[in-house]
Design a protein around this nucleic acid. Structure first.
Lengths: 350, 350
DNA sequence: GCGCCGTCCCAAATCGTTTTGACAAAGAGC
DNA sequence: GCTCTTTGTCAAAACGATTTGGGACGGCGC
């Protein structure tokens, strides 16, 4: 069913039908009702491509997911982020375009998206320090929103991000208050900006307590279960193991738990742990009482807000705020407790 | 840069330029080379919408992800599946359209996708028994491929699926061979077809050994960590706890491990466990030696194959096979061992 | 009766491609 | 030299919407 066909059946011109359906005032109310009824009856939906060819707007947002060519890692938070964003797109009448491309072709993909007019804007995922994508998108003039930030970017750019520095600063302070002095950090890949900021917050809290971050207590890598396990095992096996560890994700924290159990350490007793919790739907942090003490921030919600913000940005480029900082809360669970007394520590370490 | 503009610069007609770029034989070789060079120089990419308006093909595949209105659960395997499918789409020049919709509006979404001509076909996720989407898609004439199967569908339909029945039959047999007699099943939601088939395989192996599936040993629910934990705790706390448990996913298996550790049971000793492993990128089943004994099948690879199959189906509807059954392998890890002798069991149970 | 102004509608152009049908120019066969 | 094919190119018509610039009709004021 096309517009022309519908118009013919109604004995009207395509113009009038189009205006009636799109709410323009130039059409009589009775006519409008007649048109709307007929459209519904014949299950008429305007062809998306024809429409956007005519209007010049794609009514679609792109998400480019780079896949590293060696280790085909899919960030587990993508699913929830996309679900959140997608929910808003659906409400706003936008479509979501997903491009999964080798990281070597990412730039070409953005150019392509722009040149073919496939999308009105894109969300940039997993920004790194000095991320080249920001300059690129500015250059080709494709509206974008960064999920996260990129330290060192030359000019201001629109972003939404969790206050990672503050979250980890606070978590570290919490551990310090409990008497911990040797605190480990199992971080994400430090090429990622969020990991950098978390490390800064961690170091800052230590410095404020007159301590210095010990490089031997810091590990970074892809946030897999295996990374959490390996890093924790290494840290615990060292000469002066930490009494507390900060972890960058629930997935890694699960690996940590495995390592801790292997070493015979109980969380919240001999070893304290705080993790960041993205509130993934399939990985809730306990039920009534949280399992892990955690800095929490819903990535699903971040996706929803990101989508809203980008769409606003596209339709009202001048009046839309271009930055949004999300706070995370610190929920205290069973995985933290006072630092063990030195003598007890000596006991279980032997 | 549009086709018309490029043609003007070259002193050719749009027709010729279009033909040159699309490899039609009616254009001279020297002209073709000249056109291609100019297109590259001016970074010309044909407008995707105009093109597909003219050709009638959207060059896009839709994935409709229903989100339950109460518990906004995002299936953790979606990420890897989409990454696999997306990789193939990119190669084949297709775009991937993601629709996240409340499950109540799923049917409307399919109709919409078809009526607006947004996609050439769709992948149906997470089919249930007698899934109404199959009839719907047949009715509206939108090509589709089901990831999984739907018992009770009236007519044949194209699908790709893991042999879930066989995998769980084999896993159960493996446990029986180790001497286990009370075997629990922590399954996915039994409205899902895959869960049904796994249960069948489980029951079948028990029956072949002269045993009957005990409903008290079966739990089903969303495959979260919490579900794995709760179900295991319940099973272990019962009067006659199982000595082995089958789990439907790694995520649930992690919850199981937590419950087992709480109960003081060591995996592969007092409690044997086999899980299904979708080979998620962030949740590898151990490194050199697998952590869990598992039935393995890469959902990333399934996504890739699904994409290929659907595109083939769209371009050659008659010659493409319409069904693909993937085998899973059984990898033996540290989580299984011989059934504990009754006396030992009595010991650790008290 | 005349001019003017809303109201309601329409014909035609436009978006950027592909595709159909036709037409010159050049070579081939007689 | 004349016709008959190729060969290479083009003008124009799709595709299905939106949007621009009017135009017919009736009612109103004078």
């Amino acid at each position: 069913m096309t517009l022309k066909e519908l118009a013919r059946r109604l004995g009207l011109s395509p113009t009038t039908v189009s205006r009636a359906l799109n709410g323009y005032p130039e059409v009589g109310e009775s006519t409008r009702l007649r048109v709307i009824a007929a459209a519904r009856a014949h299950n008429y939906h305007p062809n998306a491509r024809a429409r956007s060819l005519a209007t010049g707007r794609a009514m679609a947002i792109g998400h480019v997911i780079p896949v590293s060519t060696h280790h085909e890692m899919v960030n587990p938070v993508f699913g929830d982020f996309l679900a959140g964003a997608g929910a808003h797109y659906a409400e706003a009448g936008y479509q979501m375009l997903l491009s999964v491309v080798p990281d070597t072709e990412e730039a070409a993909t953005y150019r392509d998206l722009k040149a073919r007019g496939s999308v009105d804007g894109v969300i940039v995922h997993a920004p790194r320090r000095d991320d080249p994508r920001i300059a690129l998108l500015n250059e080709i003039g494709l509206p974008f929103l960064v999920h996260g930030r990129s330290s060192g970017a030359a000019r201001p750019y629109p972003w939404i991000d969790v206050d990672n520095r503050r979250a980890f600063e606070r978590a570290t302070r919490f551990l310090l208050d409990l008497g911990h002095r040797r605190i480990g950090l199992v971080n994400g890949p430090e090429a990622m900006d969020f990991a950098l900021r978390r490390r800064e917050g961690y170091a800052q809290a230590l410095a404020a307590a007159g301590l210095q971050a010990d490089p031997a207590l810091i590990r970074s890598g892809e946030m897999t279960e295996a990374h959490g396990y390996r890093s924790t095992r290494d840290l615990l096996g060292a000469d002066a193991p930490p009494t507390a560890i900060l972890v960058s994700s629930m997935i890694a924290a699960i690996g940590l738990r495995r390592a801790a159990e292997e070493a015979g350490l109980r969380l919240g007793r001999e070893l304290s742990v705080i993790t960041h919790d993205d509130m993934l739907s399939y990985l809730r942090n306990g039920e009534a009482e949280p399992l892990f003490t955690a800095t929490r921030s819903s990535v699903h919600e971040a996706g929803r807000r990101a989508a809203r913000m980008l769409i606003e940005l596209i339709s009202h480029p001048d009046t839309t705020p271009r930055e949004q900082l999300l706070e995370s809360d610190l929920t205290v669970g069973q995985s933290t407790g006072p630092a063990p007394a030195p003598d007890r520590r000596a006991g279980w370490r032997s």
